[in-house]
Design a protein around this nucleic acid. Structure first.
Length: 188
DNA sequence: GACCGGATCCGT
DNA sequence: CGGATCCGGTCT
């Protein structure tokens, strides 16, 4: 399985985010073991976006967001959860797509239906921060091989979840047919 | 060194 | 809707 290339990620965050829907996230846990999931819900966080961790400049935590696209950004939240993002835009322009839900083949549709839940299921931790996901040998990649290929996928665009600033931006997207989406509600 | 709020989840 | 639980950012 080939990872998505750097140029896919090094584009405007609002374009990259919905295009990640339906693609397959692969976490290689050892030489033999890997876990995969279909991305069914994402959120975009952009430069000049008050809800973005990079909005107030570079810090040790968000540093990777200022680097090249295609790297992972993993942070710890609420004392017990991790959240997984992919860095977007070219070097020096911060931006990221939060992966909010995965559909795991042959599993309970709810095991990875939320940003904290999917990291818990995949055992993603801060050790997975700042991985170059465009590298062939990366333990974490996104591939174009969609496991959804024969299914209908209606993409819904709506507002983001859990933030207190810039709540009006409709920068969350999900696949309406999936039972693994964390929360469905149409943007009006 | 202290304070405080958070890109969550779960049970009520 | 509240509690769990702790790190990172900010200010002193």
């Amino acid at each position: 399985m080939k990872p998505l290339k750097r140029f896919f990620f090094e584009r405007p965050t609002l374009k990259v985010a919905p295009e990640l829907l339906g693609k397959t996230l692969v976490l290689r846990q050892s030489r033999q073991k890997q876990r995969l999931g279909i991305i069914v819900e994402v959120e975009a966080y952009t430069k000049d976006d008050p809800a973005c961790h990079a909005a107030r400049g570079k810090t040790p935590r968000n540093e990777v967001m200022f680097g090249p696209g295609g790297f992972s950004y993993v942070y710890f939240i609420y004392g017990m959860y991790h959240c997984l993002n992919f860095v977007t835009e070219k070097k020096e322009t911060p931006g990221a797509v939060l992966i909010r839900a995965l559909e795991i083949p042959d599993k309970d549709p709810k095991v990875a239906s939320g940003p904290g839940k999917l990291c818990r299921y995949l055992k993603v931790t801060k050790d997975h921060n700042a991985i170059d996901c465009c590298n062939e040998n990366s333990p974490l990649i996104v591939t174009n091989n969609s496991l959804l290929k024969n299914k209908k996928a209606t993409i819904i665009q709506t507002t983001r979840i859990g933030i207190s600033q810039a709540v009006e931006h409709p920068w969350r997207w999900y696949i309406d047919e999936s039972n693994s989406v964390s929360k469905k509600n149409s943007y009006k």
